[in-house]
């Protein structure tokens, strides 16, 4: 059995009476991208802070490539790269000066550092702006440089805390492509985001954290099936929708049906097979159907189901 790049077991952290993280456990394998999703105040940042050795855990254990991680363990810290949510760069230094500083802190030799800086600047597509001060960068460029600083020492684990906040779509796409490439090269990635589409695109597995607890974990399809989310056929119609909803719920392929505001929503196991009978039923009830949509379940609906909140709350 191979050692996971990171293993967290029973992490717990309290601030006075308030429990910020309560028994969180998960693992990330090499080359795997793990998304940690949760509403604001759910405990994501506290979990990340403990994983990166910035915060003492009250209880639990963290290992990075088999090495225990605590605030004082330098050997474990050498194995991870942190991309904080805020731009953790010196605005009055150039991109290269920032990278030289953080690279030297990570113990890179001068010759290795020179090569690595060129490499990471290429990864984040900032080669031609290396000599410019960071305070002259756009938001997207700062974000990319922020990521570059975490890659210099070739970490085994890259921890990204909402790395695309406030960036334009082009920069976001560039950042996500870069992370996918790193993951493909064998780097483990822990990713938190408020953008569900990013998690869906990037993460092999997802953990949903709420009120300090990991309430669900798995691949996207595992999560959807675990919470019993089904596709929904949505009819935009006029007429007696309530009667139609009652009639629809008696149909064998229908899991549940509800009416309201000129719409009928019908949860079904197989939309393709349920659609024709539903339209026939509407006609028989004297309901005129103006439009039909099929909504597949996604992470957003899973998240809403599990936490009762939208991800951006």
């Amino acid at each position: 059995m191979t050692t996971p790049t990171v293993r967290c077991e029973g992490l717990r952290k309290s601030y006075g009476d308030r429990v910020a993280v309560d028994g969180v456990s998960f693992e990330i394998a090499a080359g795997e991208s793990y998304g940690l999703l949760g509403p604001n105040g759910a405990g994501k940042t506290t979990t990340i802070s403990m994983m990166c050795g910035l915060l003492h855990a009250d209880a639990g254990r963290i290992e990075v490539v088999g090495r225990p991680m605590t605030t004082g363990r330098c050997d474990a810290k050498q194995l991870l790269g942190l991309v904080p949510q805020d731009i953790a760069l010196y605005p009055d230094l150039t991109a290269r000066e920032n990278l030289v500083f953080f690279g030297r802190l990570q113990g890179l030799s001068r010759s290795d550092l020179r090569t690595r800086i060129d490499e990471v600047l290429e990864i984040v597509a900032l080669e031609d702006r290396a000599g410019d001060r960071v305070d002259g960068f756009s938001g997207g460029m700062k974000r990319r440089c922020n990521i570059a600083a975490a890659l210099l020492h070739r970490p085994h684990l890259l921890v990204l805390d909402e790395p695309t906040v406030g960036v334009d779509p082009q920069s976001r796409a560039s950042i996500l492509d870069g992370i996918a490439n790193l993951q493909a090269a064998g780097m483990a990635v822990l990713y938190t985001t408020h953008y569900m589409e990013e998690a869906q695109r990037l993460c092999d597995r997802i953990g949903i954290i709420d009120e300090g607890r990991l309430v669900a974990e798995g691949t996207q399809s595992e999560l959807i099936s675990a919470v019993g989310q089904s596709p929904v056929v949505r009819l935009t119609a006029s007429g007696d929708l309530r009667t139609l909803a009652d009639a629809a719920s008696l149909q064998p392929q229908v899991l549940r049906a509800s009416a309201g505001d000129g719409r009928l929503e019908v949860a079904v196991a197989e939309p393709a097979r349920a659609l024709a009978p539903l339209i026939e039923l509407a006609e028989s009830c004297g309901v005129a159907v103006a439009g039909v949509d099929v909504v597949e379940p996604d992470l957003e609906s899973v998240f809403l189901h599990l936490t009762g909140k939208a991800l951006r709350d």
């Binding site: 050498q78 500083f101 802190l105 113990g107 030799s109 970490p155 085994h156 064998g186």
Partner: peptide, 24 residues
């Protein structure tokens, strides 16, 4: 799948202090 190269380490605490001081 490729594996990530191991990090390179040569820095002591004293040299880190000098790096930090130089930056300041």
């Amino acid at each position: 799948m490729q594996t990530v190269e191991p990090p390179v380490r040569t820095r002591s605490g004293r040299s880190a202090a000098f790096v930090l001081a130089a930056k300041d």
